[in-house]
Design a protein around this nucleic acid. Sequence first.
DNA 1: TCCTGCGCTAAGCGCTTGCTTAGCAGGTAA
DNA 2: TTACCTGCTAAGCAAGCGCTTAGCGCAGGA
Lengths: 181, 181
Amino acid sequence: MAAAVESFAAKGFHGTSTRDIASGAGMSPAALYVHHRSKEDLLFQISRSGHDRALAVVRDAVATSRDPREQLLAVVHAFVVYHAEDHTGARIVNYELAALSPEHLEEIAATRRQIEQEMRDLVERGVATGAFTTPNPEMTALALLSLGIDVARWYRDEGEWTPTQIADHYSDLALRMVGAA
Amino acid sequence: MAAAVESFAAKGFHGTSTRDIASGAGMSPAALYVHHRSKEDLLFQISRSGHDRALAVVRDAVATSRDPREQLLAVVHAFVVYHAEDHTGARIVNYELAALSPEHLEEIAATRRQIEQEMRDLVERGVATGAFTTPNPEMTALALLSLGIDVARWYRDEGEWTPTQIADHYSDLALRMVGAA
DNA sequence: TCCTGCGCTAAGCGCTTGCTTAGCAGGTAA
DNA sequence: TTACCTGCTAAGCAAGCGCTTAGCGCAGGA
């Protein structure tokens, strides 16, 4: 699975052959099928666990406080750190959805909707308590998620910023976006 | 080329066969090779013209004013509208870079650096004139681009918002992010 | 000592891939 | 009329694809 993550992230699902994965894992191509039903099933398992982790990251962060401002700081920080540190896995999570079977895609899409719902609820709670000011909480929530997701696209391990540095700055940007700075 | 854009955006470069493109264009597979050297060359041409367009969108917007605040509004608005209206092409521009040959990738990467430079210069001008306040102009510029780029990922033609509505809200978010709201 | 089950490999099957070849219809020009 | 383009197709080649089959070495239990 680690070899598959590496390869899918670098070359995409369709750009990766089962032989690539097998040799990355130091095995013969046939050995894959002892552990996994198909190449698509491997992608699904990776996507499944990645999405579960992303949702957990968001929910755990929300649970650290009851103050919307603190919750937003925690969520954006954790979400950004996750997308930077695990950019390899996060690339598959966010950019290889089209290769999933219709049934698998629907299951994954449900988790994505839950993540979006968490962020939307958070922004709306802040607006309701007067902590935040934004004319469109739904679109603002989407923009906050975009910021984190896109980190997985451009982040490089050898880059000049650490995941924490990026997360710190992005948390500040998030406060500004919701009018809480 | 239109058929290739459609197919690459929907299924990715490696997920698209030359037969897919040919039948999308109502031709035989061999007819592609009358007009294009290879499948990768087709991708390169699409990526090339898409990147040229993106850079032009940014530069044209910057040229509409001399005031950093107005320039930021114009750039973010135009950049977001482009990524929403041409989300099909923009998906290839942003997410199919790995399929390019090393030489083609380097050429494209140069244009991407120019786009980033435009945004960085703009934010820095705003900070210099006192119109903007941000502790890290470079990272803020990256975040502003992220916002636009990620629109291409999630935008759907049948969605509830028009490109202009999204661009209006995102322009406001941009002002907040640079501390100019 | 023998047996069973597990993790694995060598070989290969049927199919699809990117791309090439040979050739053909129809328009243009001398 | 003849010659030559241009834009296309039918057919197919070599290579690579996802996945299967048959079988092998070895650890653990009876």
